[in-house]
Every structure is written in C-alpha cells, then in structure tokens.
Nucleic acid binder design. Structure first.
Lengths: 113, 113
DNA sequence: GTCGTTCATCGTAGATACACGATTGGTTCC
DNA sequence: GGAACCAATCGTGTATCTACGATGAACGAC
C-alpha cells in the first residue's frame, strides 16, 4: 500500500486565479510576513528542497541540513505559520510540502515592487 | 542650480546583464539577506515609495510614515546595508533611491524558487 | 502491553530586531 | 561667528529570533 505516498499529501491544485492586490498597507504586511518566512538561509533551503521534490518527506529534510532536528522543526513551524508549506501526518512520519498558492503570492508581491 | 535635483542621485543605469546563479548555498544566503531587508512592513513601504517616485527625497519619507525620524533612519540603514537602496548627500538633505540592480536580483532569486 | 522510531514542544541562553527620545554631526543661511 | 535645519547615531527597554539538548506525544512493530 501507499506505493505512491509521495502523491498523497501535496496535490491540492487550487484553481482560483489569485486576484489580490499587490500594493497597499495590507499587501505591505503580507509581503513582509512572507519575506520574513524566507529571511533565513535554512528556510530558503527547506523551501528549495520541497519545491524540487514533488514528494514530501520530513526526516529527510533534517538529514540534508547541518542543524539539529529541533531546530529544523522550528523552521518548519515558521514556514507553516506563514502559510508557505503544509504538513500532513502520514503514519509515524509527517509529510511536508509546498503550498503553491502562497509561493505564487510571494512571487506576485515581489514582482509588484 | 539643481532645478532637477531629482535626477542627480538615482540614475546609474548599470548595464551589466545580471548573470548570477539563483540557487545553491550562496544564493540561499543572498536571498535570505534580501528577504530579511524587506521583512518589515515599514521597509516594504519605503521601497515602494522609492520605486514610485523616481526622485529621491528623504525627509518626505519620514513624513509619509507613522514612525519617529530615528526609526525611519534605522530602517533606511538596514535597506542600505542590504544594498537595496542608495543614499547621497545633497546639500542639507539626503537623497535616497532604489538600487535597481539589487531589486532585480531579488526578483530573480524569488522567481527562481 | 513494551519497545523503537518520528516529530513536536519545552526550557534555556545568547544574539538581533524594533521603537523611541536625546544627542551629535554636517550644511545652509544670516 | 551664530541659528536653524536635516539626518545619523547613541542609549535604552522590550520583544523576537536562533540554536541546542531534553522531554513528550503519537504511531507501528513485536
């Protein structure tokens, strides 16, 4: 079973067309929050890992980074609270993946500068 | 005299073609540093102000923001240290403006995610 | 049930960030 | 030489970030 566990958590295509303003006080706060989420090299690295691998994996993230497990977990929490990633419990392990909508939003806001 | 002071500090066209990697440990650190620079609503607002007005003005920035002069100056310093803006002394006042190259770099790095 | 695995959370310590008022430095004008 | 203005810096207090080891909670395997 779960011969394709990689596909179980991440899909969520989200077909809504992202029609939100890219400037104004609201957008400033939104951009600042998203920027803060990637304002640390370790978190940038995590985002890259999750973008590359369509699959998720969590413990593997810890293995790829020179940080303690608790520290990585903290960075994951930061990213999750910013809405950039999503985590789903899959048996004993947790499956993390990018939230494509938030990443698109970040790109739109930066592009709007 | 300086009937077009607005044009004095900002130009610096910078025709080099921005050929730098958008991933790797080096790029991670670079993106994190640039993201940190805009990881505060006040700094996002400052960047927007400087992008909109081709002209520079500094005291006007303070007037447009609900913060003390010293606080704004601190944010300007943060942005300057990140390379996102530039400041030139113009008589009694200081002329700030966007560093287009750094802004392009930020967009490229975020776009590369 | 017990064990081992996996991840989150807690507690701690040191470093940075954020905001402000007060002070200093530099320039222009009289 | 002042006086006035603009902006940077200093000094302060509070809050948040970053990292770690230790502890806790949830699950599968036995």
């Amino acid at each position: 079973m779960n011969d394709q566990a990689a596909l179980r958590c991440c899909p969520a295509p989200n077909e809504a067309p992202d029609l939100q303003p890219v400037e104004g006080g609201q957008a400033d706060a939104e951009l600042a929050a998203l920027a803060k989420a990637i304002a640390h090299p370790a978190r940038v690295q995590i985002v890259r890992i999750l973008v590359r691998k369509t699959s998720c994996v969590c413990g593997d993230i810890v293995d790829e980074m020179p940080l303690a497990q608790s520290t990585v977990s903290q960075h994951l929490k930061t990213l999750k609270e910013a809405g950039l990633i999503r985590g789903e419990i899959d048996g004993p392990r947790v499956c993390y993946c990018i939230e494509p909508r938030a990443l698109r939003r970040l790109k739109a806001l930066v592009g709007g500068l």
